[in-house]
Amino acid sequence: MPLMRDSVMTFSELKQGMRVRIVGIHNDSPEARRLKEMGMTVGTTLNVVKVAPFGDPVEIDLRGYRLCLRKKETLGFDVEPVE
C-alpha cells in the first residue's frame, strides 16, 4: 500500500483557478496514452482555467496551450496542488 498524501487529488476534484502538478498516472488505456501524448506527463504543471457551465468539461492550461477534457476521461491521473 503506497503512502497516501492528503494533498493528492483526482481530476474530478479540480476547481477553477487551481494550479496543480501531475504526480502519478495509473492508467494504461489508449485514452490515457493519448493524454500523455498531448503533454500530460508526470511532472507537468497545469492551470485549471475554467470549468464549463454544466460542471464538465474543464479547460486547462499546459505547456503553453489550452486543452479541454472531460473529468471522467482522466481517470488515474493524480495531481497535487502547487504554489
Binding site: 485514452e31 493524454l35 479547460e59 479541454c68 472531460r70
Partner: peptide
C-alpha cells in the same frame, strides 16, 4: 472498439 477521449483544443 475504444472511444477516443473528448480532447478539445481551445486555440
Amino acid at each position: 472498439g475504444t472511444r477516443l477521449p473528448f480532447l478539445l483544443e481551445l486555440p
